[in-house]
Design a protein around this nucleic acid. Structure first.
Lengths: 335, 335
DNA sequence: GAAAGTTGATCAATCGATCTAGCAATAATG
DNA sequence: CATTATTGCTAGATCGATTGATCAACTTTC
């Protein structure tokens, strides 16, 4: 009597067997119109609620996906999470979200927990310092996964992100060609993040191509945040004459840099380019020119890739690097 | 042989019964040191993974919590989600995250889905236009819940948020007393959001107390976003002389307003106060004075309240409104 | 030395669905 | 009319854990 309404109750009420009720539920198999009707009625009059847990136990497949993120509240990852959620729920999956604070130990624990929850797959923004062993583990566990926005050294795992070399080159080229810059700086991002080295590689490549020495680049790693950008900006200003153009590892960093520049009265003379083109960058003063990585679309693609491999385990692993575009506004000096 | 390693396999390998292995697993009951040891070894050598789904089926209690949010990627809710995640995982729960885009229909579907997942409870930022019926349903379903950041008319549901009347009063009082403003505007936020009317009530209250008429307040509802703020700012500017002080429904709105002011060369003369005090507000130009609602702490408190009621179903429902404080910076005209 | 208590482990039922195999009735085929 | 398909439904095993009832062996107590 007490306890939740089960499929058995529905079946009894409709005068059929549990199995038949199940068939109706899943809209599969051969069931006559009348029975289908009766069972449906029974379901709604009894207030039946499908128990996905029980079904998962039997079918050995959950419809939850673990989403492991380094900075849950950052604007860029907010967009990525948004995209992931959209893509997953559209296919009937639900994201189990965990935050690692960019700490590999927490990431490790989080993934263990998600595994106990029988998630069907994992979308991971790997924490800085994650070793290749993580992917080996996931493979050994036969747990489908996709890396998002950051990849790992010497690891051939499914990946969705933007092409960082191109992104760096794009930003640098614009500053060099359109604005005649001769010296550049790259601000923010921890050195261990591969996408960072890719981007600086792209920048250097552009410099060389335009006849400059690699020493024309001031490379300042640092925290990826507004306050990080502020601090880096202060250091850059203190260290002598500013480079002609500054590329920031993220829009947040650029935001902090803006502040540093303003504090020192260096407002509108300096050419700044951000990265990720988060919503709102157009509203800044001056509006921020930024390399558009399209976080939300990226999240959606990650969801799609993951679900594809879950449905069709044979699907070959792919590396999906979108070619970023430069959202040109005024912070770079364009009118 | 194939398939996952089960507790049975562990038990066999350790030469004990399934039941004993379960006791070891849960570190409960009477098990001798030696057996405990043997079972633990068996677990690690076999690579056993706890199946929470199966356990939940038996115990009738999942350890997931549904988190239903209107704007998954907004900076403020990002902080709230961060706090929720922290609070939940600290107690061994995991959040199942869904986004409603502020649409009651999607919210309805989302909650049904979460129910099928047997979530132990629900933390909800109700979509604009959510009816009281939602809470009635949740009660009828005996599903623990807590409303976060927004509450509903005529509904006595557990709630965690900031005191909006106080927030509005705080902002208005500061503008009136410290800066001698005589006319105010409240920008952004849909009229149906109760926290909005509370805030404007607080503002009006402050106006009256200082001898002004309620007509001293220009009340402009609108979308809660940067572009919304930009549009509202444009309209406000077009509608005649600016009020002495402008209070925005969120920092994002204030951000858009900044842009509108800059476009019209009204930069630093206008006194602006934002709402929520999101991280980064200190970096704006000028640094934004904002009513601090502390999204992250709010999320943590919501998690705590919900889990308390789940563990101790008798716990009386409570309304937890923190008293916000004004984070005073320069946008209001303070030095 | 018999009764009572404690310790360590096991048995079997159970949670709520899915799914294979199979059964009865009806329809189609030669 | 006998045979074969097809349709509509059901019985019962199963997924991997938890749990109340039970039990054997060993201590303690009188």
């Amino acid at each position: 009597m007490t306890g939740p309404v089960t499929l058995q109750d529905v079946a009894d009420h409709a005068g059929v067997s549990r199995a038949t009720a199940s068939l109706v539920l899943r809209e599969t198999g051969r069931v006559s119109k009348q029975t289908r009707q009766r069972v449906s009625e029974a379901m709604s009059t009894l207030g039946y609620v499908y128990n996905r847990g029980a079904a998962s136990l039997r079918t050995q497949t959950a419809n939850t996906i673990g989403v492991v993120v380094t900075h849950i509240a950052s604007p860029f990852f907010g967009e990525v999470i948004h995209g992931l959620e959209t893509g997953l729920t559209a296919s009937g999956y639900l994201p189990l979200l965990v935050n690692t604070e960019d700490d590999p130990a927490r990431q490790h624990d989080a993934i263990r927990k998600l595994r106990e929850h029988q998630v069907a797959g994992l979308a991971v923004v790997p924490a800085t310092g994650t070793s290749a062993a993580l992917i080996d583990e996931l493979r050994a566990w036969k747990m489908e996964h996709v890396l998002v926005s950051r990849y790992l050294k010497d690891v051939n795992a499914p990946y969705v992100g933007a092409d960082d070399v191109v992104g760096g080159r794009l930003a640098a080229t614009h500053l060099l060609e359109t604005h005649g810059c001769e010296t550049l700086a790259y601000l923010g991002g921890l050195p261990a993040i591969l996408s960072r080295t890719d981007r600086t590689d792209g920048v250097r490549e552009a410099l060389l191509r335009h006849g400059f020495d690699a020493s024309a680049l001031t490379d300042m790693p640092g925290e990826v945040s507004g306050s990080g950008g502020l601090e880096l900006g202060e250091r850059l200003i203190a260290s002598g004459p500013l480079p002609d153009g500054i590329i920031c590892h993220s829009d947040s960093v650029a935001f902090g840099l803006y502040r540093a520049l303003r504090i020192h009265g260096l407002g509108n003379d300096t050419r700044v380019i951000g990265y990720d083109n988060i919503g709102g960058a157009a509203l800044w003063e001056p509006p921020l020119t930024s390399v558009a990585t399209q976080g939300e679309a990226l999240g959606r693609r990650a969801a799609r890739m993951l679900l594809e491999r879950i449905k069709e385990p044979g699907t070959p692993k792919s590396i999906d690097k979108t070619i970023p575009e430069l959202a040109v506004r005024q912070s770079c000096g364009c009118p």
